[in-house]
Design a binder for these strands. Structure first.
Lengths: 208, 208
DNA sequence: CCTTCTCGATACGCTCGTGTATTCGATACA
DNA sequence: TGTATCGAATACACGAGCGTATCGAGAAGG
């Protein structure tokens, strides 16, 4: 009865504006590059003027961070879902299948690859961003580790090294192969992924 | 007796200027980002004015390309040298040693990692640059393949897949691990490299 | 309805960078 | 030493983008 309006009064329009700005920014970031992107370009792409932008974000960097948080949360959620699928009753897939599933679903997306690479560069030269990115990567790695452990157990194999170590390797591998795939068009992309993943898993598991 | 001066008359000063501009541009590119770099910033860093720049390059993109050609030629040369060392009479190193040597020598350089990533992004969004980059990567892969084949033979092992395929995998792996190492500071960087390389080589060679 | 307040649009002054045209000191060679 | 040529510096006109201050349409709430 006391505080029916804890937040600001008008919210719907504002949320819409934010969302549109974020969407548009992703577009522009991807095909112009973060460093070459101006506030104006983002606004034009979103169909707003700069007034709207500065009313919602204080800088392009802030928007970039928001974008990253949004997207990496989505990726993590997809991972959790995959994990749940493995833990569930009707689990049939092998580890390679699951990883492959994830690869096709998210990691093969060219736009996200570009964005992620941009963010990596941003982190490499911005100490503040570096912390944030490292934390999220660590969390991702941890979940991938869980996924691998779960899948291995289900496949009746025992890991000979820590899940975290394996996850770290698998991520490095997938990220490298993915970039390579887009830089050297041809029939080799998926093969590299599979070649390496197979090697990794064969090598570091034994049938329990 | 006929044409003693085929090129332009004055060369020393000009060459020096070009070199300084390239050096300075690398600095600025690395810590501002290619997209956020202006001609003026490069000139200031090099100790020249824009007049000097436009007299030597027609655009930042042209300079970027030159820089890339320079650097990737150097990397390739180092590779050839490593190959020669393996072919030579006093060869003692194993494959892992050689690869490790290369990793430490060139690939661990943070500045070059950043630059290479910038160039990858540039290639991803510039069709013209993409061709150039793809060609150089192909050449690099081919030489790494030769290196691997040579080293395997010397170690008395036979490859069970094509050198090219293995080289492709090895490069993807190393590039991924390297980026990861700088994004997630800790003790894990080199370990990931080694873990993956070992797995790869164990898996795809048999003692001949 | 009618009031209130939110939030995106507009207006403004300013800085930074661009690319070209021209100048003038430096340099190589006879 | 003289001189023709080269090449970096300077001058100039211009556009793009920034961040702030202010306004006014329109949504929310009574």
């Amino acid at each position: 009865m006391s505080a029916p309006h804890p937040g600001p009064r008008v919210t719907r329009r504002r949320a819409e504006t934010r969302a549109r700005l974020l969407l548009a920014a992703l577009d522009v970031f991807v095909d112009r590059g973060v460093g070459a992107t101006s506030v104006e370009q983002v606004c034009e792409a979103a169909g707003y003027t700069r007034g709207a932008f500065y009313s919602n974000f204080s800088s392009l960097d802030e928007l970039l961070l928001t974008l990253y948080e949004q997207r990496s949360a989505a990726v993590l959620a997809a991972l959790e879902e995959a994990l749940a699928r493995l833990t569930g009753p009707a689990a049939v897939g092998t580890l390679t299948d699951v990883v492959d599933d994830l690869l096709t679903a998210h990691l093969a997306d060219r736009r996200w690859l570009v964005m992620q690479t941009e963010i990596a560069l941003h982190a490499l030269r911005t100490p503040a961003a570096a912390g944030e990115v490292a934390a999220r990567r660590a969390r991702l790695r941890e979940r991938v580790g869980a996924l691998i452990a779960q899948a291995a157990q289900r496949a009746g194999r025992r890991l000979t090294t820590s899940p975290d170590e394996l996850a770290s390797a698998a991520l490095a591998l997938v990220e490298g192969a993915r970039l390579q795939a887009w830089l050297e068009p041809g029939d080799g992309p998926v093969r590299t992924d599979r070649l390496l993943l197979t090697a990794l898993l064969e090598q570091y598991t034994v049938s329990a």
